[in-house]
Amino acid sequence: MILVTGATGTVGGQVLRGLGADHAVRVMARDPRKVGAPAGVEVVHGDYGDPDSLDRALAGVRGVFLVTARVGGDDDEVFLRAARRAGVRHVVKLSAAAVEDDRANDLITRWQRENERLLRDSGMEWTLLRPRSFMSNTLSWAGSIRSEGVVRTLYGASSNACVDPRDIAEVAVRALTEAGHAGRAYTLTGPRAVTAIEQTAQLSELLGRPLRYEEVEPDQARARWGERYPAAVVDALSRSAERQRDGAKVRVEPTVREVTGRPAGSFEDWARDHLAAFMPL
C-alpha cells in the first residue's frame, strides 16, 4: 500500500494520477471530500495534528509520498513518528532546491533542512525531491492576464530553472514504485532557466494577444505577500527573490532525464497545456 499526502495540491494530485490503477493506493486528506480520487483509491481522513488519524491512515502502508506545508511547524516530526510505528519502509519527501544553497538561511529553507534531517535520521528508507520553483506558479498571473493583459512580478529579468510539476510527480512515482531510489536526493529543474519577461513573451505568443510586463518594486511585493503570510514568511519570500536576482536559481540539472528517461518539460510546453487558465473568461 502506498499513501499519498497532499493529493489536493499541485504535485500530490499528479502523483495520485501517475500511480494509476497498477498499485494499491490510499490518500490521506484533512477533508476527503475535496479529493478527486480515481476509482479504486481509498481516501481517508488524516490530520498531522491528530496522531490517532495518522495511525489509521498509515496502517498497512509500505511507502509514502509526504508533503507538508505548515512552515515552521512540527508536522514532519509527528508524521514520521507515526510512520515508524506503522512499519513504513520508504518515504519520498517533497522538499526544495534551496536546501543546497549555503546562502539560503531563511525560515522556509531552515524548516525544510530540518525536515530532511528528521527523515534521514528516522531509520526508514528515504528519497528527497528538491524541485526548483514550479512552472505552475505563473498561474498567479492569470487574473491580471485575463483582465488587463499584464504580468506583474518582482525581478522580471532574473532567471529561474523552474520545473514542470508533472515531472516532479513522475520522479516521485518512480521513487515509490521502483528499486534504486532509496538514499537519493534529487534536485529537479526544467531544461533551461527562464525569466518572467521571457515567460510573458511565450504566453503572449501562445495566446495570440499582446501582453505587457510590469516590474513590481520590492516594497510592493512585500506588501502583497503581507496580506497572505506572516512576517517571517514574507521575509523568506523576499530573500528567495533576491537570491534569484543574484543568479542562485539558474543551474539546470539532468535529473528528470536520468530518472525518467526523457527530457524535462519546457515552460512553453507547460503553458500550452494550461493555456485555458490565461484566456479571457
Rank of each mutant, 00 (worst) to 15 (best):
E100F: 05
V78T: 15
R62Q: 09
V88Y: 05
A97F: 14
D76Q: 13
V91K: 04
D102V: 06
A98W: 11
G63I: 00
R81M: 00
S95G: 03
D74S: 11
A97D: 14
A86K: 08
R85L: 00
R81A: 07
D74H: 07
V64I: 13
R81F: 00
A98I: 03
L66F: 10
G87N: 11
A59F: 08
V91H: 09
H90K: 11
V64M: 10
D102G: 07
F65S: 01
H90T: 07
A86P: 08
S95R: 06
A82E: 02
A97P: 10
D102P: 06
V88K: 08
V71Y: 07
G87D: 06
E77M: 04
A69P: 02
V71C: 03
A69I: 09
A82Y: 00
H90F: 03
K93I: 00
D74W: 00
V67P: 01
D76W: 01
S95A: 08
G63V: 00
G73W: 02
R62L: 04
D75Q: 15
H90C: 07
D74C: 05
S95H: 03
D75N: 14
G73E: 03
L80G: 12
V61R: 07
H90N: 11
V99I: 14
F65M: 01
A57F: 12
D74R: 12
D102E: 10
A59Q: 15
R81H: 03
S95P: 06
A82G: 02
R85S: 02
A96T: 13
A57T: 13
A97Y: 14
R62H: 08
R70N: 15
L80C: 12
G60N: 12
G60T: 10
H90A: 08
S95Y: 01
A86Y: 05
R62S: 12
G73P: 06
R85I: 00
V78D: 03
R70T: 14
V92G: 02
V99W: 03
A86M: 07
R70K: 15
E77C: 04
F65L: 01
D102S: 08
V61F: 08
V78Q: 10
T68C: 09
V64S: 10
V91I: 14
A59C: 14
D76G: 07
G72Q: 04
A69L: 07
F79Q: 07
D75C: 09
R103P: 00
V92R: 04
V67A: 04
A59K: 15
A69D: 06
A57M: 14
V61K: 04
A96H: 07
R84E: 05
V99T: 13
G72E: 05
V91W: 08
V91G: 13
A96Q: 10
L80R: 13
G73L: 05
F79A: 09
D101Q: 15
R103G: 04
A82S: 05
S95T: 05
K93L: 13
G73M: 05
R70C: 06
L94E: 01
A82L: 02
A86F: 04
L66P: 14
D101P: 13
D101V: 04
A96N: 11
A83G: 13
A69H: 10
G72T: 02
A59V: 09
